[in-house]
Design a protein around this nucleic acid. Sequence first.
RNA 1: UGGGGGAUCGUCUAGUGGUAGGACAGCGGACUCUGACUCCGCCAGCCUAGGUUCGAAUCCUAGUCCCCCAGCCA
Length: 557
Amino acid sequence: MATETPIAEAGNNFVRDIIRADLESKRVTGVVTRFPPEPNGYLHIGHAKSICLNFGTAQEFGGRCHLRFDDTNPTKEEQEYIDAIETDVRWLGFDWGKHLYYASDYFEQLYAWAEHLIEAGKAYVDDLNPDQMREMRGTLTEPGRNSPFRDRPVAENLDLFRRMRAGEFPNGARILRAKIDMAAGNMNLRDPALYRILHAEHPRTGGAWCIYPTYDFAHGQSDAIEGITHSVCTLEFEDHRPLYEWFLDNLPVPSRPRQYEFARLNLGYTVLSKRVLTELVRKGHVSGWDDPRMPTLAGLRRRGVPPAALREFVRRIGVARANSTVDVAMYEHPIRELLNKSALRRMAVLRPLKVVIENYPGDGTEELEAVNNPEDATAGSRSIRFGRELYVERDDFMEDPPKQFFRLAPGREVRLRYAYFITCREVVKDAAGQVVELRCTYDPATRGGNAPDGRKVKATLHWVAAADAVTAEVRLYDHLFGRPDPGADGDIFADLNPSSLEVLTDCRLEPAAAAAEAGQPVQFERLGYFCRDAKSPGLAFNRTIGLRDSFAKAQAG
RNA sequence: UGGGGGAUCGUCUAGUGGUAGGACAGCGGACUCUGACUCCGCCAGCCUAGGUUCGAAUCCUAGUCCCCCAGCCA
């Protein structure tokens, strides 16, 4: 009976395969995943992949997904980021219900487990400083050497560790390390750090602690505490897995999660490194984390990208273990696809060129009917004003057009959408030779846009009546970076696209366009999808994405 | 002779011994009151070399190339 097929079949991916097999073999009885962001920046489209994977997969198997903040480094984390992350995950369309957690919720337990390792002779307090530690760690091809403090008696380790917690030592003075194997080929096993001294205020625990667990010592145990069955992370954590398991093996944890790794998202013309994104904000290359050019979820939201389009994008790119870079066209496609179906059509002229209809009677105007969305009959129609004075797009007129140019030119007839056929009779120029006005005539018989005699016209133009045009600002965006592989030559900031933002301040909108609510997507006919900017005091629109433009592409050739 | 991963159309991704499929991009056409949308068609791939097999993207052997790891970041 299921004859209806989705746009594209949800691709199988290896995570799903593993879960299916685990369910069948009864290794697990249910699925529990987690999305574990560190609150040290805003979420970006790369995180969207992880969010969709974790929340989506849990949903698919009737399980649950926890939102867990990995807040083990108070020197980098802030409440602002925690709040923003919650907002963004919700906006993307996911709900963690009551399962909101923080690694810091487990600090006491983690501390107890650290003592447990010390008592078992599997962890020790090291007095080496960072430089010495690095020097003794060895290299990729040479084994490390044991620290002289490695064989401290248990009692001394315990005493020192407790004094670390008590705040007796300054930052970096001592550190708790696991006692594993300084000769391991896997660097993560060369006595990794478990706890470091950090006299810093934590967004959640305040001044309660001055020692903080490392990622490695916190992550797997947090998973175990929450009963996570499938702990999905990115590829670079692959060789942390033996350490992840070492902790689970050596600690009395309540459950046995497993870690799986997938390839993070890379997108052409885009940077998805938190470090770089943070720098873009701090150095003022963008207006903030929610600058519409940013690949952050906050930026995309402000840009007008529908969350459903992001989910669809993520679904289409799949999940694998091979590093790859997705073509931006792949990202843009579902945005247009979705917006085409849902966005109301409006007319807006970005670069106005005045048109006077010489044979239009008197100074009056009239109302015409325009369809709100040809893709959606339920969207209805609206009335638009027509009059003697109008604005059309400067780009839609050429005084000396090449043959492929179908739009307005001297002596040529075109259609004004939903209105009349007009013919350009005269070109008015200013002293500098700039075209400032077009004198045209209209054919009253073509009211509504069709000629009773059946004659055709090669172009239909959008336009706005001067009588009730509303002036607005419109921002056009291009890729933030000017090349598909920003930073490939070294300095990533040198690859910033100097024309990523173009602000047009003298745009003319039909009243219905100006009445759009902030965030609501509209299509400015023949131009693209836009949405009113919620943050701007005046009337301003952000271009989400342009319409495909085969004419412009052919011209660029 | 460090450890760990990965290679399938231009890009992303299916395939798990039985006709290499989809999406995006590109190209061509149809339609069109958005040079949009939609529709139709085309182009195009198993890293290399051996081997096993009736049959190999898939199994074996040997290579090649790419990515990650030497934070008291995550």
